[in-house]
């Protein structure tokens, strides 16, 4: 098979192709680990402690959602795992190795669709593969596969400004998946979408990632979204962000947005969060007085 050279090159284990698992297995070995990771931002005017001694471990095949109040350092954490930013303390490991730079085994899906307007959907998807040095025919095969997977076949020739917001996020997802990363890092990818599109994309993402067994860290503000998608929800405290609790979500998949179990667990996560938000607010108030 033509993909074998690619797999060797990227050290990717051969993917099990398209056998639909009944449920995600979160029992793989540890893929990513943060050990006491701290990120301090020092600028001329501010001295911000964005995240404070965070330790977190994510297993192969696991879907972890991170929720936390605005400004608690979720994006910072994701950027560190992506290798786009570096911790000022502690260490971030991927597959046992220190993360020192971005790499296509850890792909970020951004909140705003970071697609290139001069390329059509297909060329955008193929660009990641081109950067990875994959030959033309293999590029075509992978692009075909992942464009179909996100249901964009009909629009593969369209330019980015011709797509709706939801389609842009699908295209971005296809581009991220096409390089067959070992880990997807998603930073509020659906935050800018309307509720209906968001529901649909949540269902699709569940379906795609459980089929591909991709490991995902997914940042969101939306508690219900976190419960629908995650095997485990990580709650962070207000700035400076620390790990507050982790809540396992042992619900069977697929999960609908309105099932009782989802609503109940979402309520639990929300309580954890709100507690903090009120605490932070009263702290701020006492400052102000």
């Amino acid at each position: 098979m033509a993909s074998e050279t690619f797999d060797q090159e990227t050290r990717l284990p051969p993917k099990p192709k398209f056998e639909a698992p009944a449920e995600r297995m979160a029992a793989g070995g540890e893929l990513m680990a943060l050990r006491g990771v701290t990120r301090h931002f020092r600028t001329r005017r501010h001295d911000t402690l964005a995240i404070d001694r965070i330790s977190l471990s994510v297993n192969e095949g696991e879907f972890v959602c991170i929720v936390g109040p605005s400004g608690c350092g979720k994006s910072t954490l994701l950027n560190i795992v992506a290798g786009l930013d570096h911790p000022t303390g502690g260490e971030a490991l991927f597959d046992g190795r220190l993360i020192d730079r971005p790499g296509r085994e850890r792909i970020v899906v951004f909140q705003e669709p970071a697609l290139y307007p001069w390329l059509n959907v297909r060329a955008n998807v193929e660009l990641g593969l081109k950067i990875a040095g994959i030959g033309r025919s293999e590029r075509k095969r992978l692009a075909d596969r992942y464009i179909s997977l996100v249901n964009l076949r009909r629009f593969e020739k369209a330019y980015i400004h011709e797509l709706s917001g939801g389609m842009k996020q699908r295209a971005q997802l296809a581009r991220a998946l096409a390089v067959e990363p070992r880990m997807l890092l998603m930073d509020e990818p659906f935050a800018a979408l309307d509720a209906q599109t968001r529901d649909v994309l949540q269902q699709e993402l569940q379906e795609i990632t459980s089929r591909l067994k991709t490991t995902v860290i997914f940042v969101t503000h939306n508690v219900r979204e976190a419960v629908i998608l995650a095997d485990r929800v990580v709650v962070m405290t207000p700035a400076p962000g620390k790990l507050k609790t982790e809540i396992a979500i042992p619900l069977p998949r697929p999960r609908g947005p309105d099932s009782h179990a989802v609503v109940d667990l979402a309520a639990r996560v929300r309580t954890e969060l709100q507690h903090d938000i009120y605490a932070a607010q009263s702290a701020e108030d006492s400052y102000a007085i």
């Binding site: 971005p102 970071a114 290139y116 660009l127 950067i131 990875a132 890092l185």
Partner: peptide, 19 residues
């Protein structure tokens, strides 16, 4: 964001200039 997207795909300096 364009540069960050290129970076996350593992683009080298030359590749991000060219592509």
């Amino acid at each position: 964001l364009y540069r960050r997207a290129a970076a996350t795909m593992g683009a080298s300096r030359y590749q991000s200039v060219r592509y």
